[in-house]
Each structure stands twice: as structure tokens, then as C-alpha cells.
Amino acid sequence: MSTLILMTSSPSSIIAWHALGLAQALKKEDAPFSVFFYQDSVYVANALTWLPDDQRNLTHEWQKLNIRLPVCVSAALNRGITDQDNAIRHQLTQSNLAESFELVGLGELAGAIESSDRVIQF
């Protein structure tokens, strides 16, 4: 059974950490799953977010999973997060998309929903 983890919660929410825990458990069990970052969850893909050394970094934890990390391009751009291509296209001075994350369209979400047996939204 394949699972889509649909992220919509802000990275500052405890719910976002529960989603990461589910992803870690699914990966450990070799269960098929995918993730999609949408709405306020796209903030996790901001490479310029700073946290003190004594706090766990949600961005780094997602990166450690070594899975595909698609982020809704419209939601990201609306929240000031961009990759190099979109920075050039929209005449922005720099990019700030964290490594391993990729900006994609909502067609990716539609495809992920269609190919998944269940969708769990956090």
C-alpha cells in the first residue's frame, strides 16, 4: 500500500514533526511512500531559515531521508522561496531553495494522489 504524505502545516508546528516521524517509519519498513509540500509547509524548503544549534532542524531531517522532496512552486514563490531558475525568470536577486528540495507544479500532486492508495495530510 503506497502512502502520500501531504504536508500543509508550518514547520514550526508539532504536526510537521509527526509527519516526519511517519516518513521515517515508512522508510525504515521499506513501505512505498511519497511526500508533497504545499501551503505553509513549503517554509521547510527555505535554506535561509536559521535555528539555534540546540534545536532539531526539520529541513535537515527531511534531507537525511534521501527521498524526493517536491515543493509546490506557486506556494513557495508566494512565501519568498525560489530556486535559481525561478529567481531568474521572476527577476529575483537570489535563490534560497534548500538542497534536495525541488519546485514542481500541482500536476505532481495530482499524479501523486492518483497513484497512492492513501493520502495522509499533516
Rank of each mutant, 00 (worst) to 15 (best):
Q94M: 12
L20I: 03
L22K: 08
I5Y: 07
L77M: 10
L109R: 06
K64L: 10
L26E: 09
L48I: 01
G21I: 00
R56L: 09
L97M: 10
Q121F: 00
N66G: 13
P52F: 03
V73P: 00
F37E: 06
R118C: 03
F36K: 13
P32F: 06
M1D: 04
I113F: 13
E114V: 12
A75I: 02
G105V: 11
Q63L: 11
R56A: 08
W62N: 01
S10Y: 10
E29Q: 15
G111S: 09
N66H: 15
L103F: 04
R79M: 03
V42A: 05
Q94F: 14
I120T: 13
N57K: 11
I5S: 03
D40Q: 12
T49G: 09
F36V: 11
D83H: 00
T8E: 05
G107H: 08
A47T: 00
N96L: 01
Q55K: 15
M7I: 02
D30W: 06
P70Y: 10
L106N: 14
V42M: 06
N78L: 13
Q63T: 06
S2E: 10
Q91M: 09
L109S: 05
D54P: 00
G80I: 12
S74L: 13
A19K: 00
D54R: 03
T93L: 12
F101N: 08
I113Y: 15
R89P: 08
N86I: 09
A16G: 03
L26A: 14
A16N: 02
